[in-house]
Design a binder for these strands. Structure first.
Lengths: 211, 211
DNA sequence: AATGTAACTTAACTGTGTTAAGTTAACGAA
DNA sequence: TTCGTTAACTTAACACAGTTAAGTTACATT
């Protein structure tokens, strides 16, 4: 045997080649700016060869996003986190903004590109909810720990809602920066200041006592 | 004379017809979902007739956007604002999110599409900084009024920074909603709850005393 | 009545995502 | 060794997109 194995390896090699080229192109040109033909030309295959590996363009995009989501989770995992849960939430926010600044195009792809609903596959099911590989789950877990530590106001008990709100606030800073930092309309303050302030203010708004 | 005038009126009538139909379609189908052919069919002209009035599809969309920047300022202007400056800021946030939900496609182009710096023209100079026609200036003015009323903490005196942070927080809610509301990964809470919480928390974080 | 103008149409170009049908190379079984 | 099967890949085409060059046509001006 060993034949099937080699065949599979070869297939996944070209699959990876497609993914690598697609990431490069999507990042440079955006979703609409990349055509299956351009992509095929880049890797020296025919356009239809891509359809052997991916159902369609959207499916390809989805796969790339999943990889980047994993990377974000990795960054969280490999960062040293403060013991205090509130400080940990702040740290998560800072790392998140840093990630967006460091990989602006990945970030745009992941969070700023509206796309049609994507069906859930079995691979997703393994990732979702596991804080080690799912960045959102990691945030939610930390929010829950802060709730459990009794640090948040009594009426704020929905970890999901708090997570989504905190996420939105930080996402607002980085995404507005990526979309509008060159806009002469606004006299932008440094993004570090805006990040720090949105985190301080939002969390202070969540907390029980004054600091 | 009067002939030229009538001709111009007729031309701008069909131009308006194009704009009206385009807005309707863009809102319903999104930018990519609308083709010049569909649009032409809707108004019972040939596709190329549109090019008499607009350089291209993007130009058409841009025109709609400019109208909507003005409209956002108008919405602020025509809304009854609470006397309390902090409540006024909350109201601004709510109206902003509502605007994004009502014109998702315009919102995406206005605030979610990265673009190179746009040269400043004379028309812009008249608008910028005037709270009656510049929505950002309106926000900044209200923030300044809240500062002047002594409601914010002593260390928070930079109206620009506070405005940008508040804007970011609210923008985060609506933009994340527009980009990811269909994502099954997250069990989204109603956007009204997220808006209310981000406003309450951020502003409470800004305020001097507990409420 | 002839001319010019400008809104508008027809037909075509290039490029898009996607699919049906065909090719080709390598495997396992006879 | 040959045959049939499998599956990665290609060719050719479809239906659609944005856009443009070259008319056409209606009408105000001369």
């Amino acid at each position: 045997m060993g034949v099937k194995e080699r065949r599979e390896r070869e297939k996944s090699d070209t699959r990876d080649k497609i993914l690598d080229a697609a990431r490069e192109l999507f990042i440079a040109e955006g979703y609409e700016g990349v055509s299956m033909r351009k992509l095929a030309e880049r890797i020296e295959y025919s356009p239809t060869a891509i359809y052997v590996h991916f159902a369609n363009k959207e499916d390809l995009f989805h796969e790339l996003c999943n990889q980047d989501f994993g990377r974000l989770a990795e960054v969280f995992q490999s960062s040293s986190m403060p013991l205090d849960p509130v400080e940990r939430l702040k740290q998560i926010g800072r790392i998140y903004v840093e990630f967006g600044l460091q990989y602006p195009n990945h970030y745009k792809l992941m969070f700023m590109t509206p796309h049609p609903p994507i069906p859930f596959d079995e691979q997703d099911a393994e990732i979702q909810g596991n804080p080690e590989v799912d960045a959102y789950a990691f945030l939610k877990l930390t929010v829950q720990q802060t709730i459990d530590a009794g640090r948040f106001r009594e009426e704020l008990r929905d970890a999901e809602l708090l997570s989504q709100t905190l996420w939105a606030a930080v996402h607002g800073v980085i995404s507005l920066n990526l979309a509008k930092c060159n806009d002469p309309w606004v006299d932008w303050r440094p993004i570090e200041e805006r990040t720090e302030l949105v985190l301080t203010a939002t969390l202070r708004g969540f907390l029980k006592e004054e600091t």
